[in-house]
């Protein structure tokens, strides 16, 4: 019995366990403030909110596993939201294609980032930063001169806020579908294996005859697409797209991935951890707002708690 238990703990990363532990602590702390904190309704609502972050964090995790980072999240989210609502203004066909169009635009941005990182060998930190500025520039141009159509379609609204089965939010189903696909992708496919290999040592992956550059480009494309998808849903959630709607998502996405035990230098991490990280971050934000702390205090506590949690379990091994 102890054998199986210890082998179970050896297989599940300690950071992942710690992240789930922190979730429980947060729930307990939250329940002290409000009795409704542990109610199914509240928790489902949290999971709905978490779904948007979950999509973004999924893309971020893919990129972080490669040892890269995607700083273009804020404006690619906005691109997703704005482009899908733009398509919605082009008549019935546009309305029908609004969601895929928004996602495709994000994938295209991601594709360019991926090309820059994989083939031009520009550090992702700087290239995605540039892509973020380009995306911002394009969106500013679009909204600056005139007031464009910015209302989401009914489908977007339904996907983001509706509840079809068992009162479970549709957005959560979206995240579950994307998450399941990602777990399969990382664990069972050549693509996933290649992602981990590149994150560990790209040189060795290349010499093993793996298509490293293509995989890097595809991972960035996925990240862009997922960010845009989140943007589409966010636009559906608030019925419209607006500038800087993606700004509040960069730090939480990175934090969720890292708190979930993924090595920021690449090569190690599990999707279960990212799920834990996303829920953790969402709960933390929720508690801070339930406690009615002002924005200043929220930012301060938010940053401090992330640092604190990482100090507890996210430390690197000492080099010697």
């Amino acid at each position: 019995m102890t054998m199986t238990l210890s082998s179970f703990f050896a297989r599940v990363d300690k950071p992942v366990l710690a992240a789930f532990g922190c979730i429980i602590v947060l729930l307990l702390v939250g329940s002290l403030y409000s009795s409704s904190f542990l109610s199914p309704e509240y928790l489902l609502q949290q999971l709905q909110v978490a779904s948007f972050l979950g999509l973004i964090a999924t893309g971020m995790m893919l990129v972080v596993l490669l040892g890269q980072i995607d700083l273009s999240v804020p404006w690619v989210v906005t691109v997703g939201g704005m482009m899908s609502t733009a398509a919605a203004g082009w008549g019935p066909l546009g309305e029908a294609l609004a969601i895929p169009f928004g996602i495709t635009c994000g994938m295209f941005m991601g594709l360019i980032s991926g090309f820059g990182v994989a083939y031009l060998r520009v550090p992702s930190m700087i290239f995605t930063l540039g892509m973020n500025a380009v995306a911002q520039g394009l969106m500013v141009l679009r909204t600056g001169g005139f007031a464009p159509q910015d209302h989401s379609t009914d489908t977007m609204h339904f996907l983001a806020t509706g509840r079809s089965i068992l009162n479970i939010p549709n957005a959560l189903f979206v995240w579950i579908a994307v998450g399941a696909a990602t777990i399969f992708l990382l664990g069972r496919t050549t693509f996933g294996r290649t992602v981990y290999a590149i994150g560990n040592k790209e040189r060795a992956a290349y010499l093993s005859g793996l298509p490293t550059q293509r995989v890097i480009m595809l991972a960035f494309m996925a990240s862009g697409g997922l960010s845009a998808f989140a943007g589409v849903l966010l636009a559906g959630y608030s019925t419209k797209a607006y500038q800087s709607m993606g700004d509040p998502y960069l730090l939480p996405a990175v934090a969720a991935v890292v708190l979930g035990g993924t090595n920021i230098l690449g090569g190690r991490g599990s999707y279960i951890g990212t799920i834990a990280g996303v829920i953790l971050i969402t709960l933390l934000q929720s508690i801070l707002s339930v406690m009615q702390i002002d924005e200043a205090g929220r930012q301060l506590i938010y940053g401090a708690v992330i640092i604190g949690m990482l100090l507890i379990y996210g430390r690197q091994k000492k080099v010697s």
Binding site: R193, Y196, A197, N200, K201, A204, L207, L210, G267, R268
Partner: peptide, 20 residues
């Protein structure tokens, strides 16, 4: 630096070139 991904498992390392 060129032959192995040291933190990856023996299994995963072994199958890398033959993945396809």
């Amino acid at each position: 630096t060129e032959g192995l991904m040291l933190p990856m498992s023996v299994r995963d390392n072994l199958t890398l070139p033959a993945l396809d």
